[in-house]
């Protein structure tokens, strides 16, 4: 098989993740902290962008998928921890990887469940339904004693490092980018631009929409698992609607449908969150104003090329 640019980029990303992880001991904790959070945000933003940006199915429930992955993987590693605490470190990391994947698959299953009603809904209605799904996931966790209820789970083993974070971020970017950059993948954008025309051109819009939700939710689940095993503590309140909005802001600032744009926006917003930590109460006000102004003067985002589309008239 001839190597192509996509493969080379994937390999380069993975090598860079190894390198970053190798120099981690030389960095101070604060820098590593910011890097890991940036990596997790990249995964969240790039995966949500597949749903909201490329496919045009506006989801406000990404935090719910993140919660599904975070809780599933944490329950697994917590229940294995008596065994793993005495085992060699590499076995712990293998178990962690397995737990992450199970969390991702469970989140993907939730994504499938959300994707199905999305088939009949458009735009703003879908946004509210996904918000509702996300909230249902949160309410269920909050009321399940086995998951720690409202108190949350603590003592989650801190397996997450720069290699896991950026390795998975690289894979997420690769998957979304290669998915969209093919004849098959242009169908996602066709569904966004005009669903009726897409169907008329032989595109199975159902399959595309569900695929976007499943892939998006899978990576959100991985991001949730990484987050849980980094902070070591998760609670349902951390995955509420405002967390979903955080990710939506990244996607919009980066430009819906632009993978490099939203990845850059994820890094930028992570940095801003840290730099503005002393001005916490102003941070969200700035974001809110940014959203409003952006929609009025530059709806394609700061970096993207999202189309300004005229609303189609509804037939009475």
């Amino acid at each position: 098989m001839k190597p192509n640019i996509a493969h080379i980029a994937l390999a380069a990303g993975l090598v860079a993740s190894f390198a970053l992880n190798a120099i981690a001991p030389q960095l101070d904790d604060y820098a590593v902290n910011i890097l890991v959070l940036a990596g997790i945000n990249i995964i969240l933003a790039v995966s949500l962008n597949l749903v909201n940006g490329h496919t045009g199915q506006f989801s406000l429930g990404h935090a719910g998928f993140m919660a599904a992955g975070a809780y599933t993987s944490s329950i697994i590693t917590l229940s294995l921890s008596p065994v793993l605490s005495t085992a060699p470190a590499w076995q712990g990391h293998v178990a962690f990887f397995g737990a992450l994947l199970v969390g991702g698959v469970f989140a993907a299953l939730c994504g499938f469940l959300v994707g199905v009603p999305s088939l009949r809904l458009r735009g703003d209605y879908l946004a509210i339904v996904t918000l509702g799904f996300g909230e249902i996931i949160r309410v269920v966790i909050q009321n399940t004693e086995a998951l720690g209820g409202a108190r949350g789970l603590e003592g989650i083993p801190p397996y997450t490092n720069l290699l896991w974070t950026f390795g998975i971020a690289t894979v997420a970017i690769y998957v979304v980018a290669s998915l969209v950059n093919s004849t098959y993948g242009r169908g996602f954008i066709a569904v966004r631009d005009d669903e009726i025309a897409a169907e008329a051109m032989g595109i199975n819009t159902t399959k595309y929409k569900v695929t976007a939700f499943v892939v998006g939710a899978f990576f959100a689940g991985l991001a949730g698992g990484l987050y849980a095993h980094f902070i070591s503590y998760i609670a349902p309140e951390g995955f509420n609607f405002l967390k979903s909005v955080d990710v939506v802001v990244m996607v919009i600032l980066g430009g819906m449908g632009s993978t490099p744009g939203v990845a850059a926006a994820a890094v930028l917003l992570t940095l801003m969150n840290e730099l503005l930590r002393d001005f916490e109460q102003y941070r969200m006000i700035v974001f809110a104003l940014l959203l409003i102004v952006l929609m009025i003067i530059r709806p394609q985002g700061l970096l993207g090329n999202f189309q300004r589309r005229k609303r189609k008239p509804a037939q009475p």
Binding site: T183, I189, A190, I196, A198, Q307
Partner: peptide, 14 residues
């Protein structure tokens, strides 16, 4: 009802 944000080429290949 073209796919307005796609190129001419992509409209056809889609």
């Amino acid at each position: 009802r073209l796919f307005s944000s796609l190129s001419v080429f992509d409209n056809v290949r889609t």
